[in-house]
Design a protein around this nucleic acid. Structure first.
Lengths: 416, 416
DNA sequence: GGACTTAAATCTAGGGACTAGATTTACTTT
DNA sequence: AAAGTAAATCTAGTCCCTAGATTTAAGTCC
């Protein structure tokens, strides 16, 4: 419960302070010692020594053209430094059941390369691993060579984060036993498999990564408590409460099996699944009126997108389905909001861009299921990019938390 | 999301290390420099200097009888020190709707005094504050004078924690609006009201404190993810996930309004409430057979304790009720376990000592509601003491986290 | 009782990281 | 060219740590 870290020597202080300064300047295009002095209260001597150290370690460059666009007017010009986002790279992977997306980004999160590959539902673990590896290699190659404006060589891959549709514990392992060992097939010890790809490899649940994406650059940015609800084929949630991502003992936090027990919901089936079910049901029962745009499609391929499009045009059957989906969503949100007191619920998944009307109606209905304060429900703007974007953000956070655990360039390595 | 603390001077290091050593020796009856050296890796010179500092600040005493019971055999005898648990006191209060319990403990949690007072349900906020204050004063007086073996004067009250039946945010405030402003009546800005009572005053939700109690000295000890479910008149949960207590945006995490939406549960009514309802229903309907021990009571006063007693004797109606309660409990646990992946659920509340049979049956039923891994359900051993015990533990944690934020004795104060 | 052993305390030197303040430097402004 | 200015650099000095030599307060052994 308690830990007792002791700073054995003053040398550790240097290390700690250098890392703090690095984090401080991470997102600034350029900085001077005076900037750091203002933010930390440290002396100029100290700050300059810390900057020297950062330059020596390869994280920061000193700019020699200090006359940057009339930045100063009087006095001796300040030495200018800049965090070098190209000194290393990170990789974020969405290793889904059917698709694999790998993204490579620099240390400020600018995307350098991307690769997408498909997988069949019954792919063997070996095939999965091979496909993921190819996607990563392709993305890394894509973001490597001619990248820099000056053709500067891209830095080494520091951190890799893989998102999988399975619970993962703090070590990236998934519990073995569920139906047909689905989790074990989705995550066949990926952390070990890819240990060679980056200096740090993390495996994380996909809904959790979607939550991280929303938290850092999406609709949950700046919030301390919110949930991201993936709503496609099956519901799944990424939970961020009091500023931390919840995992649970085996990594199962956010699993939505409890919906089996919820009135008017009854299963963890997601909105896409239920929409398809409802519209086919209507078609089979001959409930589609003559003018309905839904009649234009083969009933066997009707899906959520068709329903939303038809509802947009005012089709009565489609509107009824949207209403049912909204009620379902409102109930699911009520459960999460009530137990965890979140500020906002972001609804994500591949079809989130089309969810506006459903979210709107769910918002209206939510107050009838819970007491105030009632959280807002909003549709994600990230769509199917949420997982790999979240994986990249997570990888960046890993590097930023302990930058000096990573080796940057060869020079730095040989210097030691 | 990120913070950038910088250790401005080496002086801070002394402070940090002294606090770390203090935490290290907190629970030891006595210690020597060698003990600390073994645990921290610091030099003897450093450790002795740190010990001097702790003695100077009043947290630790040097024992002059170093010949403690043949502790050493050869070599120069070590200077022996001991953390002084009497150098300060903490107060934990269960400020319930009907009862107020205040506990005073020394810095190792040994109870020095206690006071209990009753409150009517419709007591005004002013009455509530007055009653709580009297309970605290009485408990402090109780644990003050003749306490020490040598009649040593008790230390000042460092931290006070008050538990209230309302959500509380990080500053101890409760959201205003629910039915008849119950929360505001239960927590009329208690943190400000009692600012004079201790050097630090915290207001916290009662279920959260019960969870803390279970976590530190109860059935949840050593776990990183578990829930404490208060099960008396209404369900309420204290949630500890990944080693942190969940609060939520307004402190509402663990509110169980969502049970309104759960199949076979339908309301947040607790086990005591439902037991009473069911047994009266049976009595009114004339379902109690001639030999039932439940007939011995006035139907208007029959309660959960009577049901459990009758079930113990094998009464069929009582057993049926126990079954219904167990199913209810299992469903509630399923909801929590599924969403948060907790290792264990501790069922607490005043009647927890009698809950054995209900918990047993609920455990049997739980696997039919959720997939493995299935958490264990256990009855709390703390009963109605959970809240004030948790409040004391919380107060201890506050002191222990930043001991040097507190002033100890007058000498220490005047010395400065 | 005196010599040996032992483990802790104490003393001495030295280094790293910070602060504070004087001095120098590299510019702009006039 | 001289004055003004803000940053860099230099010079002490402090604090807190380490490392290792020396001293101390016992027990042990003969």
């Amino acid at each position: 419960m308690d830990s007792y870290p002791v700073a054995s020597s003053a040398r550790l202080l240097r290390h700690t302070n250098a890392a703090a300064v690095l984090r401080l300047v991470w997102d600034r295009p350029t900085f001077t010692a005076s900037d750091v002095i203002a933010d930390t209260g440290l002396t100029r001597s100290t700050v300059l020594a810390l900057c020297d150290e950062l330059v020596g370690r390869g994280w920061v460059s000193e700019l020699d053209d200090a006359r940057a666009a009339g930045e100063y007017r009087m006095g001796r010009p300040a030495r200018r430094y800049a965090f070098d986002p190209r000194s290393g790279r990170v990789v974020g992977v969405d290793a889904g059941q059917h698709h694999v997306t790998a993204s490579v980004a620099d240390l400020r999160g600018a995307v350098l390369g991307r690769a997408v590959r498909e997988l069949t539902a019954d792919a063997s673990p070996a095939t999965r691993v091979r496909t993921i590896r190819r996607a990563i290699e392709e993305a890394v190659a894509d973001g490597g060579g001619a990248a820099g404006p000056a053709g500067a060589p891209a830095g080494p891959v520091l951190a890799v984060v893989l998102g999988v549709p399975a619970p993962t514990d703090a070590h990236g392992a998934s519990p073995p036993g569920n139906q047909r060992r689905f989790w074990a097939r989705m995550n066949p010890e990926l952390a070990e498999q890819f240990a060679d790809v980056g200096q740090s490899v993390t495996v994380e649940n996909d809904a959790n990564l979607a939550a991280v994406a929303e938290w850092t650059i999406g609709a949950g940015s700046g919030l301390s408590s919110f949930a991201t609800l993936l709503s496609g084929e099956r519901f799944g949630a990424g939970l961020i409460v009091d500023g931390t991502l919840l995992r649970g003992h085996h990594g199962g936090a956010g699993e939505m099996r409890l919906l089996d027990l919820v009135d008017g919901v009854g299963s963890a089936d997601g909105l896409a699944h239920v929409a398809r079910e409802l519209v086919r049901h209507a078609a089979d029962a001959g409930d589609l009126p003559a003018g309905s745009p839904l009649r234009a499609h083969d009933p066997a391929t009707l899906d959520a997108a068709d329903v939303f499009a038809a509802a947009q045009e005012g089709d009565a059957v489609a509107l009824r389905i949207v209403d049912r989906l909204a009620d379902r969503l409102a109930r699911v949100c009520a459960v999460i909001a009530s137990l965890l007191d979140v500020e906002r619920i972001v609804v994500g998944g591949a079809l989130s861009p089309a969810l506006g009307p459903v979210v709107e109606r769910a918002t209206e209905r939510l107050p009838s299921y819970i007491h105030p304060p009632v959280p807002a429900i909003v549709a994600s703007g990230l769509g199917s990019d949420a997982v790999h974007v979240g994986a990249v953000r997570r990888a960046l956070a890993v590097v930023r938390a302990n930058p000096f655990d990573f080796e940057l360039a060869r020079e730095a390595a040989t210097r030691a």
